[in-house]
């Protein structure tokens, strides 16, 4: 059943909306501070509100959600390939990072084209917490992004209405899982981490994450506010 008649959807949406507004105002405050700090000429500019994106509703909203995550991953691997870790990486790791950059860029461009005019704007990212010269820092971030992607697609599947879109998500999520297993094996070679107990339960089921959980985790790296209040719940 796709629509729960009992759940007070209005309340849920209001709560999400409130969260978004709080976040939005944080960004506005941050932008204001920035301007105070660096703008010493006489131009009086109105405080610029940081533009957020609205994912939208229904399947379009979920495709935009996937597009947002693919934007994040593509931006990450593009940055990896500019950094010191990649320059000095082993042949195996260079090949893996090069492949992942292409796969995620292909996913991103695909969603952008599929969404057409409904696509959200380009997201702004902040990778300052990642040291792109450091192997462990890069691989741990890659692990976070790949595991997050798998859990996001697994959690979103049940909200997709169109079987064609569900199949597309299915075609991509298994590739993200292949990535995640490889990255985990680079971090701890030959161990059972590729399919570790931290993400797979006693029934052999991988974890799923909700829209809210995924976007909260992503917000550590995405500075553009994302309004997901119209996504199905």
């Amino acid at each position: 059943m796709k629509k729960d008649l009992i759940k007070p959807q209005g309340l849920v949406k209001n709560a999400n909306r409130r969260k978004f507004l709080q976040k939005g105002s944080l960004s506005i405050a941050a932008a204001g501070l920035f301007m105070v700090g660096c703008n010493d000429d006489d131009d009086i500019m109105p405080p610029m509100e940081k533009e957020g994106v609205m994912l939208g509703s229904g399947d379009i909203g979920i495709l935009n959600y996937a597009y947002a995550l693919e934007q994040l991953e593509a931006a990450f691997y593009a940055t990896v390939m500019q950094g010191g870790y990649f320059a000095n990486a082993s042949a195996e790791e260079k090949e893996i990072m090069g492949d992942l950059e292409k796969h995620e860029r292909a996913h991103k461009e695909f969603f952008k084209a599929a969404l057409g005019s409904a696509a959200i704007e380009d997201l702004e990212v902040d990778f300052s917490a990642i040291n792109f010269d450091d192997r462990m820092s890069v691989l741990n971030a890659a692990k976070t992004f790949e595991d997050l992607g798998v859990a996001a697609y697994n959690g979103a599947g049940q909200h997709i209405q169109d079987a064609g879109y569900l199949l597309i998500a299915g075609k991509i999520v298994s590739v993200e899982a292949r990535h995640a297993a490889a990255i985990r094996d680079l971090l701890n070679p030959g161990s059972t981490d590729f399919a570790g107990d931290d993400i797979i339960d006693g029934n052999g089921l991988e974890r799923t994450l909700s829209f809210s959980e995924v976007l909260t985790a992503a917000s550590n790296y995405v500075t553009t506010p994302i309004d997901f209040s119209q996504l199905p719940s």
Binding site: G157, S174, A177, A181, A195, R207
Partner: peptide, 9 residues
């Protein structure tokens, strides 16, 4: 889906 991604890993 949660089994599917485990098989892929």
């Amino acid at each position: 889906l949660s089994i599917h991604s485990v098989e892929a890993r």
